[in-house]
Design a protein around this nucleic acid. Structure first.
Length: 419
RNA sequence: GGAAGGAUGGCUGAGCGGUUGAAAGCACCGGUCUUGAAAACCGGCAAAGGGGCAACUCUUUCCUGGGUUCGAAUCCCAGUCCUUCCGCCA
């Protein structure tokens, strides 16, 4: 959510920054709504003052007048709130302003690679895809999921299910024991307000799974990422500066409709309606976002380093960033079957954008109440990590070796094979 | 699902029709004292919004939404959430 005052003072700059995000805004409408709103507020406040004075005076001769003012005030207040709602609706649909060093471009082709790490494995046989490997092992079953549930779901079975769990536990342990995150096991559903706070609503309602709790209008949403629920822990709060930074980690299932991605990644478990993800969230002093983003990105890549998986780090362009982000680094892991890098983590700073929406504040060094900075990143997507391990650690006989750091989590098993 | 109680500032907690934006304590910030710290003492300290270059000033807000009244944190109605007891249950 943008502060209308800031927009007012930097009209042209605001407009061009938003345009760089593939969005054309009607700045004139915003300006005129804002002006109208303020005029009405002034009128309203004058009447309120008059009314207040009368009631303070306790002068009975003025009581009739006060009644009349109430009536006038009533319609004025309705008019003003209507205008304000209209303005808020527009403002809440405008994405965050990118930071200065974010590459400008309309889509992902403008993303910039920053660097590559790890060595790409060389196979003396044709590298199989994760779903070929998994199905051959009888440990990934897409057909069964189609039967019980539908497309874009999967059964993970046997040793692969254990591996999935091991990955999750390993990541959580690294983040809690060496990276200073506090583990949270949160609700997997979020309220309207929470979804609005992190930016999923109102604009992206179609991507969310809605859950009806009763016949009335009480609804919840399955979380598309733990970011929603972890970040909203700070909603409607004024935090003490001593409590910052707040670093949280959770391993949760995530649910996404993936509307608009028909035909994309239909094979395999790259893109599912449900997947596990280990999520990192930081709530920080708002001038420490950039520093924290770098730290968080390193926490994510640390996992890939430990798993010895090859990856690269890229910075997303203005056109490819998420709605709430001001700067995003994606971490992409190498997939031998596709011979390319695929996203396995996305770390974003949202600045004060989400905090403004959810009124998450703290008292800064000068004792002023101000919005916190919020950041979120995957550390990492568990399903895709599983994929990366299957493909990068595959052997010619169809078995899959287990990365050293995961062996303690797998009863010291060396590799997963058919027998 | 039945029965009762509750929701007030960052926190605890008074107020229960009229300068109450709200006592008190804690926390926090500034100062005195101290070699330094603590303690003690003094002072400050809600948020959002409007107007003003500024000093400053005005409005709104005591869970939410209605209502009564010249005037509501305080009275009435509806809703949400929480706590305790009973029932049911992973």
């Amino acid at each position: 959510m943008h502060n209308i005052k800031n927009i007012r003072n930097n009209l042209d700059e605001f407009k061009s920054k938003i345009q760089s995000r593939n969005m054309d805004i009607n700045i004139e409408e915003i300006v005129s709504l804002d002006k109208e709103n303020r005029t009405l507020i002034q009128k309203k406040e004058n009447l309120e003052k008059e009314k207040k004075d009368i009631s303070k005076s306790k002068d009975k001769s003025l009581f009739e007048k006060s009644k009349k003012i109430s009536i006038e005030l009533d319609s004025l207040a309705k008019e003003q709130s209507l205008i304000k709602k209209k303005l808020d609706k527009i403002l809440s649909s405008i994405p965050n302003i990118p930071m200065g060093d974010v590459p400008i471009g309309k889509d992902e082709t403008f993303n910039k690679e920053i660097n590559k790490f790890g060595s790409i494995p060389k196979f003396d046989f044709n590298a199989r895809s994760h779903y070929e490997i998994g199905e051959k092992l009888n440990m990934l079953d897409f057909n069964l999921a189609t039967k019980t549930t539908g497309s874009r779901f999967v059964f993970v079975k046997d040793k692969l299910a254990a591996l999935e769990r091991a990955i999750s536990n390993f990541m959580i342990d690294v983040h809690t024991q060496t990276n200073g995150y506090k583990e949270i096991s949160p609700p997997l559903m979020a309220s309207d307000d929470s979804m609005y706070g992190t930016g999923q609503l109102p604009k992206f309602e179609n991507d969310q799974f809605e859950v009806k709790l009763d016949e009335k209008n009480d609804r919840k949403f399955l979380i598309p990422t733990a970011e929603v629920i972890l970040t909203n822990m700070a909603r409607d709060q004024i935090l003490n500066i001593k409590d910052l930074p707040m670093r949280l980690v959770a391993a949760t299932p995530c649910f996404r409709k993936e509307a608009g991605s028909y035909g994309k990644d239909t094979k395999g478990m790259i893109r599912q309606h449900q997947f596990y993800k280990v999520e990192l969230v930081s709530i920080v002093e708002n001038d420490k976002c950039e520093e924290e983003l770098n730290r968080m990105t390193n926490c994510a890549t640390m996992i890939l380093d430990k798993l010895k998986l090859p990856y690269r780090k890229i910075i997303l362009s203005t056109g490819d960033m998420g709605f709430s982000a001001e700067k995003t680094y994606d971490i992409e892991v190498w997939l031998p079957s596709e011979k390319k890098y695929r996203e396995i983590s996305s770390c974003s700073s949202c600045g004060t954008f989400q905090a403004t929406r959810m009124k998450a504040r703290y008292k800064n060094k000068s004792n002023e109440t101000t919005f916190v900075g919020t950041l979120n990143g995957s550390g990492l997507a568990v399903g895709r990590t599983l994929i990366a391990i299957l493909e990068n650690y595959q052997n010619s006989d169809g078995s899959v070796s287990i990365p050293d750091v995961l062996k303690p989590y797998m009863n010291n098993l060396d590799k997963i094979s058919n027998n």
